[in-house]
């Protein structure tokens, strides 16, 4: 990457709502920017003054370990102040609406809202009603952009580029915002994506997505370069999408035996949390092909870059005025 290549792009977005609306160039720019943040986490003083004086609020209406901690750490490492908000201990339990909650927080002078919500479109809705930067940390079944960014960042790190790679996303696609953001990011960066799982876990209108669909993991495992295993979202399942968990793992679990039939350099990914023994065997999750913990580590650099870029987007927009 030469300097002039990078300089062509000016980041103008003050929100990160999803990857569907970003261009390939913008995604690549964001990933290139994230490289510059990796080094901060390797120092003895894990801090840069970049967002000093900014306030970030983590507005989480759903449970989260990784994403929330990762955003908190990312903001801390850039010297921003972080306010943690949880549904249980807030006035939401007294009947306050999302927009009212956010407006009240904004009145206290926050700059960036990181929101996770069980309704698709919540982040977008918020961006229309308040002035702060909005970062979508997962909205319903819609998108989870920072997860997909760290996924493609990790693939680029391991394989150099996504161009021409065959990537399988396995499991509960229907309930997965991670899958949706992955599809946009990976296909924009030139990969071929195959969704793999039982028909009952495929999303509606899957034929409108830029992907192939396979109902058999065994039929496609040999051709994959990267496999992203998703958790069955039991908390969101209605009805009986498969006869039993055992049967599901029998057909769609990533076992040592299946990995042995795949390409030797297959990259095994999982967005977490893992259900060991269900969608992935422990030996595979902890094995040589797995980049699962690397994904988590990369999440920090990617989220620092996102926090930085949305604030740059604000500066850029105020320049235009």
């Amino acid at each position: 990457m030469t300097e002039t290549d990078q300089e062509k792009l000016t980041w103008t977005h003050k929100h990160l709502l999803g990857l569907k609306d970003l261009t390939r160039r913008e995604i690549e720019f964001l990933l290139d920017t994230a490289r510059g943040f990796e080094e901060i986490s390797t120092r003895s003083i894990k801090k840069a003054p970049t967002l000093r004086g900014k306030v970030v609020v983590n507005l989480f209406f759903e449970d989260s370990t990784r994403t929330r901690t990762s955003f908190t750490l990312a903001a801390n490492r850039l010297s921003a102040d972080v306010v943690e908000f949880t549904k249980k201990s807030s006035s939401v339990s007294k009947g306050e609406t999302l927009i009212d909650t956010a407006r009240n927080l904004e009145a206290m002078g926050i700059d960036i809202v990181v929101i996770r919500h069980n309704a698709g479109g919540a982040a977008k809705l918020l961006s229309r009603h308040i002035n702060a930067c909005i970062i979508n940390a997962g909205d319903g079944y819609n998108e989870h952009p920072t997860q997909a960014l760290l996924d493609v960042y990790t693939i680029r790190q391991v394989r150099g580029s996504l161009e021409g790679l065959k990537i399988g996303i396995v499991g509960d696609i229907a309930h997965s915002r991670v899958a949706r953001s992955n599809i946009w990011a990976m296909t924009k960066l030139g990969a071929e994506v195959t969704l793999i799982g039982p028909p009952t876990l495929m999303p509606a209108k899957v034929n409108e997505l830029p992907v192939r669909v396979s109902y058999s993991l065994d039929a496609v495992i040999q051709e994959l370069d990267v496999i992203n295993m998703l958790r069955i979202q039991f908390e969101r399942l209605g009805g009986n999408p498969f006869p039993s968990v055992r049967e599901y793992s029998h057909f769609f679990g990533l076992t040592v035996e299946r990995v042995a039939r795949a390409k030797p350099d297959l990259v095994v990914m999982h967005p977490g949390p893992i259900n060991r023994g269900v969608e992935i065997e422990s030996e595979v999750a902890d094995g040589a092909n797995s980049v699962i913990l690397r994904q988590v580590a990369n999440g920090l650099a990617v989220r620092m870059a996102v926090l930085f870029l949305v604030s740059q987007g604000v500066a850029e927009q105020s320049k235009e005025r």
Binding site: Q6, T33, F37, F308, K319
Partner: peptide, 18 residues
């Protein structure tokens, strides 16, 4: 990441993190 003009929109192009 250490510049003192990150929030000053006046001036040159957007700084790029390398």
């Amino acid at each position: 990441l250490y510049r003192d003009d990150l929030n000053e929109p006046k001036g040159k192009g957007q700084p790029q993190v390398r």
